[in-house]
Amino acid sequence: MEINDKSGYKRYLAKDGRYQQMKYRRCGRSGVQLPLLSLGLWHNFGHADDLLKGQQILRTAFDLGIIHFDLANNYGPPFGSAETNFGRLYKEDFSAHRDELFISSKAGYDMWPGPFGNFGSRKYLVNSLDQSLKRMNLDYVDLFYHHRPDPDTPLEETMGALDFIVRSGRALYVGISNYPDDQAKKAIAILKDLGTPCLIHQARYSMFDRWVEKRLMNTLDDNGVGCIAFSPLEQGMLTNKYIKGIPADSRAAKGMTYLQRETVEANLAKIKGLHAIAEARGQSLSDMAIAWLLKDERLTSVLVGVSSAEQLRSNVKALDHLGFEADELKKIEDILKS
């Protein structure tokens, strides 16, 4: 909600009743509850993006009861700019609500030159988080992830760094991201022994990318660790965007790094088949794709990235229809396996 002050500036006042319209789910066996939809700032919050549009997205998210904002040190472009822009907007609109927010960041990918600007050394993780806190105008983050496994640094050093980060007050909780099942098991065990349990695993998961179902979800559930899905719409493939072909202004047409024209064309029959099921359910394809993930109650939350406040409101509609009939699930499986 916005009100005009004497200068004409539209000042933000959080909407009353925002917690009544969002559903929350407990994260593993912890005390943390996250909204079924969380907001990722991977795209659309860099220095090349419209900051006013980003502000509207964040304000809309909070008014909808979305209290989890997810960042990383190298989100942008350029690296660090998403955190810098978030820090400006946080200070302006959300600092009074710090205790209501659950803010996460990560480190593990390329960030600065030299041997200490990447992967999983203690030096990189601690220094990176210190930089992130300055950019975001925060004293601590609620959650800090190691963003990906490091093939060379001992896992004990990386997990030890996460333990130190919690004990030093830089983060309340820690998690891992992009870890395959075998490495996730080891990381969870090390953190448990250190006395700083792993809160959550952030994994790529969608109708088209189901690797977590093989073993990882059971591993996390057995250890009381939550799971949050990123890229739930497969970079836009699981939306209505490509039903009638590849639009000229789409990621696939532009040959973006994360989505190629050939990938869309190879999946077009599946996209159209899933779209038909979604229509019969009275949903958009994107809403159904989100609901399909959340049918598994072991999944704590789905992380969405949006380019507008309107798109975010549309995504939230998925929560109105989470249930699936047995025949719907069978039809979806038949399409996905075809």
Rank of each mutant, 00 (worst) to 15 (best):
V264F: 01
H201S: 12
A229C: 12
V174Y: 00
P197Y: 06
A187K: 02
A184Q: 04
M256L: 07
S206R: 01
N223A: 15
Y242E: 11
T239R: 03
D249E: 12
A266T: 10
V174P: 03
Q283M: 15
A248I: 01
A248C: 02
N223F: 00
A184E: 06
L238K: 03
P232Q: 02
G226C: 07
I243M: 00
K214D: 04
G175S: 14
S177Q: 07
D182A: 15
G195K: 09
I271D: 02
L216T: 12
R251W: 04
D221M: 11
S177D: 08
D182R: 14
K185N: 02
I277E: 11
R251V: 07
A276G: 02
K241I: 08
D181N: 08
I190H: 10
G226H: 04
C198G: 09
V264N: 04
D222V: 14
M237R: 05
L259I: 13
M237V: 09
K244M: 14
A229V: 02
K270R: 13
Q202G: 05
A278V: 11
S231W: 06
T219M: 05
E265L: 13
D193C: 00
A269V: 06
L199T: 04
S231M: 02
K214L: 11
L194W: 03
H275C: 07
P197T: 01
R204H: 12
G195Y: 13
K244H: 11
G226F: 00
N178D: 06
G273Y: 01
L216I: 13
T196L: 01
A248Y: 00
Y242R: 10
S231K: 03
Y205R: 00
S250E: 10
R261N: 07
I200E: 10
R261H: 10
Y179Q: 12
Y242W: 11
D249V: 01
I188L: 00
H275K: 15
T196H: 06
R261L: 06
Y242N: 09
L268A: 10
C198T: 14
N267W: 05
I271K: 05
M217C: 08
T257D: 09
V264R: 03
A269W: 10
I243R: 12
D182W: 15
N178H: 04
M256P: 01
G255K: 04
K254N: 13
G236I: 05
Q260S: 15
E262D: 12
E234G: 03
T263K: 11
A276C: 08
K214R: 15
H275A: 14
M256C: 09
I277C: 13
V264I: 09
N223E: 13
I176G: 07
M217K: 15
F230Q: 04
S231E: 09
D221Q: 14
Y205T: 03
A278R: 10
L194S: 04
L274H: 13
I277F: 14
G195I: 08
P247Q: 03
E265K: 14
D209Q: 14
I246V: 14
N178G: 03
A187E: 03
I176S: 05
R251D: 02
L220Y: 01
L191R: 01
I200A: 02
Q283W: 08
P180G: 15
I243N: 10
T239M: 06
R251E: 04
T263L: 07
M207P: 12
D222T: 12
R215M: 12
L191N: 07
A253R: 00
D182C: 13
L220V: 06
M237E: 03
L274T: 11
